[in-house]
Amino acid sequence: MNNIKKNRLKDQAFKIWGIACTLLGLVLLAIFIGNILIDGILRIDWEFVMNLPSRHAEESGIYTALMGSIWVLLLTTLIALPIGIAAAIYLEEYSKKNKLSTILEVNISNLAGVPSIIYGLLGLEVFVRIMEMGASVLAGSCTLALLILPIVIVSTREAIKAVPKSIRDASFAMGASKWQTVYHQLLPASFGGILTGIILALSRAVGETAPLIVIGALAYVPFAPSSPMDEFSVLPIQIFNWITRPQHGFVENAAAAIIILLLITFVMNGIAVYFRNKWQKKFK
């Protein structure tokens, strides 16, 4: 009896501790967002979105950085999506369980833990210098694509794995080839999960600063990119640049830019959730 009481008490204690831990994250996030909103919300207007960077905080805007971020996002998606999905399909459906595939799998998991600045150094050497892309949107996107590939591959594999075995078996029983099964059954069935993984990975990419600074993304660009070979800046670099300035106006600018960056990530996460729900329902 005494023992049972003790265990119940422990159980209660852990529950409270768990709640506290969960709330800690939420409270911190609320404080952070509240702070940023107070600092920056009044600063956001059309001018702020459309102006070029300037030494006068009030006249400064994020146009070029925002455009750069959008370009980088689109190109990163174009590059990472096909490679990541193809690699995941191969690893999940085609590769045999042998030493090579084990090495591949371990390495992909390891890559997910490599600090982003290392990817920047790799990108600088391979894309910017050897492939002569220069400090272009394309070089930045290739670097970020490498950065998020492990996440895309792992999440795509999870999504494919989650497709019930019965679907696979049914497809094969109908005489479908492996590719037909993948293309007509597995991919559509797991698409919601794949998309969620990719969008979450992109949300990470859109906030990256270090690798892009290393490959030579700029802080001041008076023009928005018009081709993948143009120089560019991105929102996180603009924010980083503004918070290091002593004048208070720039801190407001940084807060306002952070709000816009957060909006982009929230919208992307929203899209991910929407697609996941939609596809899951369809599949059922």
């Binding site: 070029l52 960077p53 030494r55 700029l218 802080a219 008076p222 023009f223």
Partner: peptide, 20 residues
């Protein structure tokens, strides 16, 4: 940055880019 901003008024066709 300040110089580049002012220079734009004088020679708007020259694109000055600055990294950090």
């Amino acid at each position: 940055e300040a110089v580049a901003e002012e220079f734009r008024a004088v020679q708007p066709k020259v694109d000055v880019t600055i990294g950090v």
